[in-house]
Design a protein around this nucleic acid. Sequence first.
DNA 1: CATTAATTTTAGCCTGGGCTAACTTTTCAG
DNA 2: CTGAAAAGTTAGCCCAGGCTAAAATTAATG
Lengths: 149, 149
Amino acid sequence: MPAKRQEPTAHVHSPAIEDYLEQIHNLIEGKGYARVVDIAKNLGISQASVTNMIQKLDAEGFVVYERYRGVVLTDEGRKVGAEIARRHEVLTRLLAGFGLDPQTVHEDVEGMEHHISRQTLDVLTLLMEELEGNAVLMRKLRTKLAGLA
Amino acid sequence: MPAKRQEPTAHVHSPAIEDYLEQIHNLIEGKGYARVVDIAKNLGISQASVTNMIQKLDAEGFVVYERYRGVVLTDEGRKVGAEIARRHEVLTRLLAGFGLDPQTVHEDVEGMEHHISRQTLDVLTLLMEELEGNAVLMRKLRTKLAGLA
DNA sequence: CATTAATTTTAGCCTGGGCTAACTTTTCAG
DNA sequence: CTGAAAAGTTAGCCCAGGCTAAAATTAATG
């Protein structure tokens, strides 16, 4: 076995699962509970689809589900949801710092946040922090960016 | 109609389609032609799946396909393929510059390359160029990165 | 508290994009 | 030029994750 390149818990989830957990996490964070309606609204899909997925999330131990009652995150589910939310925030701050159109930032972040390893997240966090604390560099880059009209 | 936020040709394709076109593009670039076997090998999927998708790509005008003969890119197909290859290169150079494990870089890039708008690509290109030309900054960041062990 | 509205769930369906097995066509070595 | 190997194709299947319509449950209002 010549080196398997795999961390202890490499846990990779489908983008869909991550989207649900992120959203549930955000809802609970924000209003204390997560209803099917709201999850559906935020993800832009039907309520029926949400119910389906929630049942799968329960079966896979990310969530505790009880018919007609709300949904609660398990420790594992909370971990994943928070993780994605974190990636979301880093990406958003990094891109928004350049003054990109918010809609575009949002779309790109939505797409990219599912594909970022710990290592890459560290790099992007570093870049974000550097830029947020280095106005000179930021100005220089934004000027160049404006030149690419 | 209060502003639809949409470029003339916003053309968004499925990740699968983009993967195929990128791969076909690379193969043609590299060896002058793209065979089903090679596409399958590079994407890590079966030849049958490739044949299927190639027929769809033909139907959608990305490729010209003739049974048992190879496959050729249309102008549109070439445009998309080259575009993805470009995003691939920028992301790879940006991340590799930080000395990340090549396998990780590859995986992250594979995932992210389908979700990057023109604007975001410009930003990342800018960052890549800045870092490649600013050894002092690069060293500083890599040092910090190493500190996150 | 009864009825209407809102929410949730179930049932059944559909599409994208994989797969294997079996068959056909092309290529190539002898 | 022939027959085996390689490449390509077809047929039929599967699964994730959407959807709608209709049924069930819970909430809210007159």
